[in-house]
Amino acid sequence: MSMNADGQGLAGVSDASPADVVGVYDGWVSTYDTDVLSWGYEVPGRLASVIAAAGATNGDVLDAGCGTGLVGLALDAVGVASVIGADFSPESIDAARQRDVYRELHVIDLSQPLPFTSQRFLAVVCGGVFSYLADPEAVLREFLRIVRRGGPIVFTQRVNLWESRQMDAVLQRLADEGRCTVDVSPPRPYLPGHGEFDDGVHDVTLTTS
């Protein structure tokens, strides 16, 4: 799967192999911030506001799939004391390090078990990443493991992938098991200036039980 220099073809990257996705983001670092902000990317601020409203600021918060650090900047702006970043693109991690808002940064594949102790984090934020995660239930179970009771897990999932990734069933299972409560927003803008993302995303908040 390839993406043009103008960002066309980005939506289809969700079907690419993990190695191909890493290649896309490693090669996109130099213009990523300018591109997504020009397309009206507001996800970082929206998700950070949920963390602030939940009062999950005085401790470690994981920015899962941190990319170049736009979510980390938003978390820092709402007063999160300790932002920990993780991404599987080494070049993106290097860019995020330049922000000077992360206490730690890790190169991690979120589709694998996470190298963090249980209940380490006050919260997890994961913006614009679930498009690339073929098994969202496994990822969410890991997030639930590493977040303390009562903490929020805030993420987005594209509307046009919601059914194929069986998100309703996944979230219902987690709720039925008593692992969390679930709040799913109506469709909200994702990259409104990019023609491939007209359907937007759902913002999802799980609160651990």
Rank of each mutant, 00 (worst) to 15 (best):
V61W: 10
E91N: 13
P115K: 14
F121D: 04
D15G: 09
A53M: 10
V107K: 11
S2W: 08
I153P: 02
A52G: 09
R188W: 02
V129N: 01
G150K: 11
W162S: 04
F116R: 01
F130Y: 15
D76G: 11
I146Y: 04
V80E: 01
D76T: 03
G150S: 12
G128C: 12
S14D: 01
E196H: 05
R97E: 02
A175V: 07
Y132Q: 07
D199S: 08
W162L: 05
G193E: 01
G9K: 00
E91K: 11
M1F: 00
V129W: 10
V13K: 05
Q119Y: 07
A81W: 06
W39E: 09
P90G: 10
C66F: 13
R188T: 15
A48V: 04
A53L: 12
L191R: 13
C180A: 10
G45Q: 14
F197Y: 10
P44N: 13
D100K: 06
V71D: 09
A138W: 00
W162H: 02
A86P: 07
T117R: 15
V24E: 08
V83A: 03
G23D: 09
E142Y: 01
C66H: 11
A86H: 11
R179S: 11
A56L: 05
T34I: 10
R46K: 11
V129I: 08
H194A: 11
L122N: 00
D20M: 05
C66R: 13
A64E: 00
V50M: 15
D135A: 06
V107G: 02
G55S: 10
T208V: 13
P192M: 08
S209F: 13
A53R: 15
A64S: 02
D199H: 08
V139R: 05
A81H: 10
G195V: 05
A11N: 11
R158N: 12
V107H: 02
T57Q: 14
G200V: 09
D168Y: 00
R46M: 09
V184M: 08
V50W: 09
F155I: 01
A11Q: 11
H202S: 04
R97S: 06
A52W: 03
Q166K: 03
G127E: 09
G7D: 07
V80S: 01
G193D: 02
S2D: 10
G72H: 01
Q98S: 10
F88I: 12
F116W: 15
M3Q: 06
T57G: 10
G9Q: 00
A48R: 09
D109G: 07
G27Y: 09
Q157F: 12
P18Y: 03
F197W: 13
V125S: 12
L37V: 15
R179K: 15
L70H: 14
D35K: 12
W39K: 11
S30N: 07
A11E: 04
P18A: 02
T68R: 03
S209A: 11
V159D: 09
E163T: 11
E137I: 01
T181E: 15
E163W: 06
A95F: 06
D87H: 07
L174Q: 02
R165V: 01
Q119M: 05
G79P: 06
G45K: 12
D20Y: 00
L37K: 13
T34Q: 15
C180P: 01
Y25Q: 14
M1L: 08
A134W: 01
G127V: 02
